[in-house]
């Protein structure tokens, strides 16, 4: 590995991080938009949000990327800059997964909270903003943390379209050196470190948000957080079969 090749890898990391941040923002926006819409009282709104979720969850992220790169320019005349095309495809796809998290967390808030809001004469928007979301958001953080790692892994897909992310830089280095063991090991390690940093970041965020509504960060029932592996026979009568 020469310094020139390391420069390629560093550029790749930068593109991956940019893509991750932008598509995470779009995915977060779409999650809340569709997730809140799915709890709406109007069936049209619920139906449209459900349609979005099922369409984007139903198909593969790689096919979405192909579609944005090849079909959008031909069919609608929209030629997007690669970074935005990747952001659009990944953000919409992972936003559909995120909307399920938002919907689930909103539904998990004690119904009495909503009823209390109605009794106090809050408008629907005030109820959402002041009562439901502050209680639901901390519960969303652990599953969102998992989704963010999935999104990081998803960003590797844009390399198929020739966008110069971390995975693509590995391809270039492989072609330059005519050997692949070293560079792919490095790239896997870099992705792992990025994923580790993301999980740490989200755990800190969770702690702060939980403190905001007066709850300890440890008591997280029924979310997809990593539990410590329990050793010993018969330990742990808690977790049911409700994974994912």
């Amino acid at each position: 590995m020469t310094p020139g090749l390391w420069k390629l890898v560093l550029d790749g990391i930068w593109v991956t991080v940019q893509l991750l941040v932008l598509s995470a923002l779009l995915a977060g926006f779409m999650s809340f938009l569709a997730g809140i819409a799915r709890t709406s009282r109007r069936w049209v709104v619920r139906f449209l949000a459900g349609l979005y979720t099922e369409v984007f969850r139903g198909t593969s992220a790689l096919i979405m990327i192909f579609w944005v790169y090849f079909v959008l320019p031909l069919a609608f005349g929209w030629q997007l800059v690669p970074l935005w095309a990747g952001t659009l495809a990944l953000g919409l796809t992972y936003g559909a997964y995120g909307s399920e998290i938002v919907r689930g967390a909103l539904n998990a808030v004690d119904p009495a909270q909503r009823e209390g809001g109605i009794a106090l004469g809050f408008t629907p928007w005030q109820r959402m903003r002041l009562i439901l979301l502050p209680q639901a958001v901390p519960e969303m953080i652990p599953p969102f943390s998992n989704l963010l790692v999935e999104l990081l892994k998803g960003t590797a897909l844009v390399s198929v379209m020739g966008m110069g992310d971390l995975t693509f830089s590995a391809t270039l280095v492989r072609l330059a050196l005519q050997q692949s063991a070293e560079i792919y090991t490095y790239v896997l390690l870099i992705y792992f470190v990025l994923a580790f940093l993301l999980t740490r970041l989200m755990r800190g965020l969770e702690k702060r948000l939980k403190a905001g509504v007066g709850r300890a960060s440890d008591s997280v029932p029924a979310t997809g957080t990593k539990r410590a592996a329990t050793a010993g026979a018969g330990a742990g009568a808690t977790a049911g079969g409700s994974a994912s």
Binding site: K153, V160, Q179, S180, Y184, L188, Y191, F196
Partner: peptide, 22 residues
């Protein structure tokens, strides 16, 4: 944990390009 937190695409490339070298 390592396999779960790294992209399937890169793992696929690893198997496809590195195994023949071995």
């Amino acid at each position: 944990e390592f396999v779960r937190d790294t992209p399937l695409l890169v793992q696929l490339f690893f198997l496809f390009y590195v195994l023949p070298e071995w």
